[in-house]
């Protein structure tokens, strides 16, 4: 490790002008299964980037390649200009990482977990104490310093994991499904924390399967089978959506659902109170309006503005069809 660190020292300082994270045609297969397929994206300092996709889309593998925990078959992940693979030791110093799985020590207390990671990151004692107190304060865990980590609620646990990942003041934070298993209140709190750090100039890359979370990112990349379907700020993706979102007002929702669910134009369908919300290609809007008038199950149609979930489901359906 040490030998590698010293070799070519001039190339090993982080480049402040480089993107915080740059994925360059990252590819990684496990056996026959291509988990990540030529994926490229960048995250700037002070930006919150969300990798959004269903389970198995390749989110975790991408994050692991960025943190140097999985080696790419081809392509490269760079953190502040440095390769996450060949200069992993330097890159690790600038990344805070929170894996999806519970990864702290349940039989250690909140304080002990923090102290342990502070020592691993080589924080001097006084600084570690100060930083620990500060993070406990921010995450509002100060009262729970003595509590064993396995006795924390899901939300408190995630906040502790976040605190452990932030001890060394990393300029880059990587989070794998941070709000998995967290109640809605804690979830909001967690997001407020993230925005707080992003405003301070931190680059955050997170993976999430939840659309409401994706909508809170500065930019998102829609990941499907290891490839990006679309990328951009959520509002922009919504504005540029080329399909139509329709609300079907029905007398008998179940009957309508039965009548339309086999139609090939249908891209997405979800119940919405007594109504049905569907995504269809713009060209098919007339067809559905007719269908509602003629029956057999009658409904009236009104077009509504799409939300992020409609965009996501519509693009996903396009990709599946292609």
């Amino acid at each position: 490790m040490r030998g590698r660190r010293q070799k070519g020292a001039e190339a090993l300082a982080p480049d402040p002008d480089a993107p915080a994270i740059a994925a360059e045609r990252l590819t990684r297969a496990f056996g026959d299964n291509v988990a990540v397929d030529g994926l490229s994206f960048t995250v700037a300092p002070g930006e919150l980037y969300g990798l959004v996709g269903p389970d198995g889309a390749g989110k975790t593998t991408t994050l692991r390649m960025v943190t140097g925990l999985v080696g790419p078959d081809s392509g490269a992940a760079r953190v502040r200009g440095l390769s996450a693979e060949s200069t992993a030791a330097v890159v690790r110093e600038s990344i805070g990482y929170m894996p999806q799985q519970y990864s702290l020590y349940g039989d250690l207390s909140v304080d002990e977990n923090l102290t342990f990671f502070a020592r691993l990151f080589g924080l001097p004692k006084a600084e570690a104490r100060e930083r620990t107190a500060q993070l406990l304060e921010i995450t509002r865990l100060s009262r729970f310093g003595d509590r064993r980590a396995d006795a924390l609620s899901g939300g408190m646990y995630k906040k502790l994991a976040l605190a452990c990942a932030l001890l060394h003041r990393p300029p880059v934070l990587v989070l794998d499904e941070p709000s998995n298993g967290v109640d809605p209140v804690s979830r909001r709190e967690l997001w407020d924390l993230l925005h707080h750090f992003v405003h301070g100039g931190m680059a955050v890359l997170l993976a999430t399967p939840y659309m409401d979370e994706a909508a809170r990112c500065d930019r998102v990349g829609l990941l499907h089978r290891g490839k990006l379907l679309a990328e951009g700020p959520p509002e922009q993706l919504i504005r540029g959506f080329h399909h139509a979102t329709l609300m079907l007002h029905c007398d008998d929702r179940a009957a309508v659902e039965g009548a339309i669910e086999a139609r090939p134009e249908l891209l997405a369908l979800s119940p919405h109170g007594a109504d049905l919300r569907i995504v269809v290609p713009r060209a098919a809007v007339g067809t559905f309006t007719d269908l509602g008038r003629r029956g057999p199950a009658r409904f009236t149609v009104s077009e509504v503005s799409p939300d992020f979930e409609d965009v996501y489901l519509g693009l996903l359906a396009d990709a599946e069809a292609a």
Partner: peptide
């Protein structure tokens, strides 16, 4: 098994 190895590997600690 518990996933803490992944967290350890993401810190500067050596093998």
């Amino acid at each position: 098994e518990r996933g803490s190895m992944e967290q350890l590997f993401a810190t500067p600690v050596g093998r």
